[in-house]
């Protein structure tokens, strides 16, 4: 297995802390390599553990067994402070969006960039770019609480992409989008991948399942992750 670049899961097991050892694992012996320059889609039933896998890849959770490697580094084994620092290379889109309601749209996009030694003027340029990509330029100074569900989701994606992360992990990024914006988001993620990012999406969305922008398809069921051969959609 190639471990030098991208995100790799090696014999990954996960059980929620506090659960009895006899209870079934959420993830069991998961092996996967998510390579740079590709968009990978993980599908599965509700409660199958897709979000959990994403949070493990982001370093928010520690595996019960096995390892996660990022660009040749065993990040899942690192101490918290090193993983926190590594997470500057990660852009996460949460399923529940996790926006700050009393900040404006543009101010939400500032958050990932503040600790990264980026100049104020460059931050403003990046925000302008992301607002245009997300079709939110007219709403830059609106409070987040005034946005629709779809607009907030596009803002959440913009926040994940604003710092040009190496690893992009998106949980149901098109759940509240119409066809036009869903396609636009697909193109956004594909563009990010073409610039060298590792993109992993967890989604039920049929539009993503059938999208040409997705390079690899995985299916999570019964705690096991399987890759579907190229071109075939999972059941």
């Amino acid at each position: 297995m190639e471990l030098k670049t991208g995100l790799c899961c090696r014999r990954l097991n996960f059980r929620w802390p506090g659960k009895h050892p006899d209870e079934p694992l959420v993830l069991e012996s998961v092996e996967a390599v998510f390579t740079p320059g590709t968009v990978s889609l993980v599908t599965g039933d509700t409660g199958s553990g897709k979000s959990t896998l994403l949070h493990l890849l982001a370093g928010l959770l520690r595996p019960t067994a096995g390892e996660i490697w990022a660009d040749g580094q065993p990040v899942s084994r690192w101490a918290s402070r090193h993983r926190d620092r590594w997470r500057q290379q990660v852009g996460i889109v949460f399923q529940h969006l996790a926006l700050i309601p009393d900040l404006t749209v543009a101010e939400n996009l500032l958050l990932p960039m503040i600790p990264r030694q980026i100049s104020w003027s460059r931050m403003q340029e990046e925000i302008l770019r992301q607002l245009a990509d997300a079709d939110l330029s007219d709403l830059a100074d609106s409070p987040t609480s005034a946005l629709s569900g779809g607009q907030r989701q596009r803002l959440s994606i913009a926040r994940a992409l604003v710092a040009r992360p190496r690893f992009i992990l998106a949980d149901e990024p098109t759940a509240f989008q119409d066809d036009h914006h869903a396609a636009r988001i697909g193109r956004q993620l594909c563009t990010a991948a073409s610039e060298g990012a590792v993109v992993v999406i967890c989604s039920h969305d049929l539009r993503l399942r059938s999208s040409d922008e997705v390079d690899r398809r995985f299916h999570l069921a019964s705690a096991t992750l399987t890759e579907n051969p190229a071109g075939r959609q999972p059941p």
């Binding site: 931050m123 403003q124 100074d141």
Partner: peptide, 17 residues
């Protein structure tokens, strides 16, 4: 009326004035 994007490009979207 909101300014066009071209003008926004020269503005500061999150000025935190």
């Amino acid at each position: 009326m909101r300014p066009p994007i071209a003008q926004l490009n020269h503005q500061c979207p999150a000025p935190c004035r």
